[in-house]
Nucleic acid binder design. Structure first.
Lengths: 189, 189
DNA sequence: CTATTTATTGACTCCAGGGTACACAAGTGC
DNA sequence: GCACTTGTGTACCCTGGAGTCAATAAATAG
């Protein structure tokens, strides 16, 4: 009982995610959120304890979406290399927006001071690396990818390349160059 | 004529650099700066127009130092691979502090909204890539590095790996793992 | 219909961030 | 010594960030 909420929390978190992604944590004000989420300040603080807590929810939601999309993109029939290629481009956020990856941005902004952010980031990075690794192992099993290098090493290198490309995208690098860079990292596997 | 300054601007910028590196731009308050630079607020704003301007000076100084150290580390007699290896570790900021790279942090925090920051970052990244490239070319000329892959492609991949490692360091990855990752990227060249 | 519970609204508070103003200090030229 | 110029130190100011609160609305139980 009691009055029902006029919005769905998940949708609001999705919108908050966009705002934080565009502006970063510190640069996003409660007023920004009120304006863009379409709910009042009272509801905001009633539903989500604080700006920081909402931020954490947004980070986790972003991570979950990314992991799901990655799993979907990598599964399916071979060949696996083009799948990896496409997945890397998506993760790096190359193209249209130039906001990079929300998690990368957040860990760079707050990582050394905010343990909860660092933890979410480490978690996402570990999951991406694991997904890369299993894809590489599949490719090695089918002979599509050389086995001279351990799959774990290659997966780590690909993860670093994706993160690096995400940052480079924010600094204004040419998307075509970044695609070449990612391809170079991938071909080296 | 006029009263002489009681401090040297360069030293103060160096100290400011440390503070911004530890805390990021938004999280650093004028009071923080006053406390750590050892100069009064009046001098601060008289010498450096604004917090943002001081920040830019700090970024540029950081870049200049990095580029100089990189050039010094890469020059000298062969073999060039161990030099690259060491340079990458230094650039990624693996080890003690866990603050990553100041430029990477700054571009991730402000890059898509602050053109001047993005420009300094792009500049540094270009210079690092160029230094990598010329080192790789030297290695190729002496047969130390395979020439199957264009030096430019490898240089881009190494740059992305270094940036990625810097971010991973902030999220709390094990330094030993990061060193493996960097080695994997380097061996792939 | 009333009591109770929970959401919403938006005015309000509190404080810190970023910067300014001004009185004073420390130099130089004459 | 005196004018002039340029730092220094600090009290002060203003805005906006983050969050709270009291009044009100919308539901359910009985």
């Amino acid at each position: 009982m009691g009055r029902p909420m006029k919005f769905e929390a998940e949708e609001v978190v999705d919108k908050a995610l966009e705002v934080f992604w565009r502006q970063g944590f510190a640069a996003t004000t409660p007023q920004n959120l009120v304006d863009e989420l379409g709910i009042g300040k009272g509801s905001l603080y009633n539903t989500f304890k604080s700006k920081h807590h909402l931020f954490e929810l947004a980070l986790r939601r972003y991570s979950a979406k990314r992991v799901a999309a990655l799993a979907e993109g990598l599964e399916g029939p071979e060949p696996v290399l083009p799948r990896l290629r496409e997945a890397m481009r998506t993760l790096a956020g190359i193209g249209d927006h130039r906001f990079g990856c929300l998690i990368v941005n957040s860990v760079a902004e707050l990582g050394s001071a905010d343990e909860s952010v660092a933890a979410v980031a480490k978690d996402l990075f570990d999951q991406i690396e694991a997904a890369f690794r299993s894809a590489i192992e599949r490719g090695q099993a089918s002979g599509e990818i050389t086995s001279v290098r351990p799959a774990g090493d290659s997966a780590g290198a690909l993860l670093a390349a994706v993160i690096g490309a995400s940052v480079l995208a924010k600094s204004g690098s040419d998307p075509a160059d970044l695609n070449r860079t990612l391809d170079a990292a991938l071909q080296a596997s």
